[in-house]
Design a protein around this nucleic acid. Structure first.
Length: 104
DNA sequence: GGCTTGACGCTTA
DNA sequence: GTAAGCGCCAAGC
């Protein structure tokens, strides 16, 4: 097992445009359903030179994480809407936009 | 080697 | 429906 961060990046990169995943969902896909926080930290430490669609990663309820900067959620929502993701109020209906990795 | 820090998640009030 | 607390796991110091 390589570093979890690297696995997280790889998983997030697999998310197709117009689809979203939850932190816990990504963690679960990596075999650590309780490591949702690590996903957030991995994305927090995400260097901008790394091309990872972190915007496609939302909370379990489909809501955008605040992060530490108030402008982060706004930019994220804009990026998702640009990809075709539909927003209900400030949340995304994961029932339709939620993406699940191909079952091994 | 151990302590602290979090883009979180779930249960309970 | 909202608010507060506890639990989990990896990375950094």
């Amino acid at each position: 097992m390589a570093n979890f961060r690297e696995q997280i990046y790889a998983m997030v990169r697999r998310i197709p445009a117009g689809r979203v995943m939850g932190y816990g969902q990504v963690a679960a896909a990596l075999g650590r359903p309780r490591a949702a926080r690590q996903v957030g930290q991995a994305l927090a430490a995400l260097p901008m030179e790394n091309a990872v669609p972190w915007q496609r990663v939302l909370r379990s309820s489909g809501e955008i994480a605040h992060g530490g900067d108030p402008g982060r959620p706004t930019m994220q929502r804009f990026l998702l809407e640009s990809e075709g993701v539909e927003f209900q109020q400030e949340r995304v209906p994961m029932d339709r936009f939620g993406w699940i990795p191909e079952p091994a």
